[in-house]
């Protein structure tokens, strides 16, 4: 028997990348199921195309780069595929989903060197690419209908979109803000197929927190920032600005805060950095939602904060043990 001459430590925790990725996938199950419940076969179609597309492309690109294809098993491509799907309307045409998968795996991930090297969240790069390239398809949202397995769908704008339109046309958000907020909480609501139920996403997020896969710093600061800032505007002018509860329950906030902004590779590593990151994501989201051209800003906010992650890391280095602040000596 050969003995192994490995460097210390000889004990290692059982944590692996696989364990992290599959735990996140499990945490996304409630949100995915709610998506399937309300958007039916189309939701399944988009998810399948996206996941299979990402996996096939991952294998293909790894081959192309002359790499071992074992990273296919690490779960990261499946996760990117599922997150991309959850960020798309269930009516997205199949070819468009494949374009998204191509952008995510190729431009979001492998041009930088693969998992661990990408500065931006690959699924969000793809989502934003599709949103900019195919704005009509990407903003036509099928109406949620429980257990409709018909492939015909009626599309309408999301409440956030409707609000923006009302505001531009009439100067007021109208009665959209008075809707029953139980709908977005449970998921009976227009939107991307995986973002509609705040409840399911929070449940998944709590699971990740409990399994210590993520820490509270990013999701809590992200959501609280959106709540506080939209709350301030709402107090000032409820005719023009929707309530903070409406803002945190609608759009992609829960999906973004718990599952996209917390992506290890593209977010800061220190607790202090994560707080800055979360607050930044929240603030940019609010500015885009309230004053920008797009009704929703979560994706843009996260991508913008991804770009400053290296700087945040640089300036939030913890104070090394023993490097005490010099006491000022009074002469």
């Amino acid at each position: 028997m050969e003995t192994v001459l490995a460097p210390s430590p000889h004990l290692r925790s059982p944590d692996t990348i696989e364990r992290v990725m599959y735990t996140v996938l499990i945490a996304l199950v409630p949100g995915s199921l709610i998506g399937i419940y309300f958007f039916g076969l189309h939701a399944i179609r988009v998810m399948l195309i996206s996941i299979v597309g990402c996996l096939v492309l991952e294998g293909f690109v790894l081959k192309l780069r002359g790499r071992d294809i074992s990273p296919l098993k690490d779960g990261s491509a499946i996760l990117t595929g599922l997150l991309l799907a959850m960020n798309l309307p269930s009516s997205t045409p199949g070819w468009m989903v494949i374009v998204g998968a191509l952008v995510a795996i190729l431009l979001g991930k492998h041009v930088y060197g693969g998992l661990g090297y990408n500065p931006f969240n690959p699924a969000l790069v793809a989502r934003v690419f599709l949103l900019i390239s195919f704005p009509v398809a990407m903003t036509s949202w099928p109406e949620p209908k429980p257990f409709t397995f018909s492939l015909d769908t009626v599309t309408k704008a999301t409440p956030l979109g409707e609000m923006k339109t009302n505001l531009l046309m009439t100067g007021s958000i109208g009665d959209i803000a008075n809707i029953d907020l139980m709908a977005p909480f449970l998921g009976n609501f227009g939107g991307s197929l995986g973002e509609v139920s705040a409840l399911a996403l929070i449940a998944g997020g709590l699971f990740l927190l409990a399994r210590k896969v993520i820490t509270w710093h990013i999701p809590v600061t992200f959501i609280v920032t959106v709540f506080v800032m939209t709350g301030m505007f709402w107090v000032i002018n409820p005719q023009k600005f929707a309530s903070p509860v409406f803002h945190i329950l609608t759009g992609g906030l829960m999906l973004g805060a718990f599952f996209m902004a917390t992506d290890y590779v593209t977010s800061p590593v220190t607790n202090k950095g994560m707080i800055i990151f979360g607050v930044g994501c929240g603030a940019i989201t609010v500015f885009i939602r309230l004053f920008g051209g797009y009704p929703e800003g979560v994706s843009f906010a996260i991508l913008l904060m991804n770009s400053v992650t290296p700087i945040i890391d640089q300036y939030t280095k913890p104070r090394t043990f023993g490097y005490l602040r010099e006491k000022k000596v009074v002469a």
């Binding site: 990348i17 060197g113 977010s267």
Partner: peptide, 28 residues
């Protein structure tokens, strides 16, 4: 008995930063 290691790129999870008793950024 010992974990079979499969060394890969750092995914910047920050776990090493949290456990470092000297408060270094080991991943960097």
């Amino acid at each position: 008995e010992m974990k079979a290691l499969n060394q890969r790129a750092c995914v910047r999870c920050g776990a090493c930063v949290r456990v470092c008793p000297v408060s270094l950024m080991p991943q960097t």
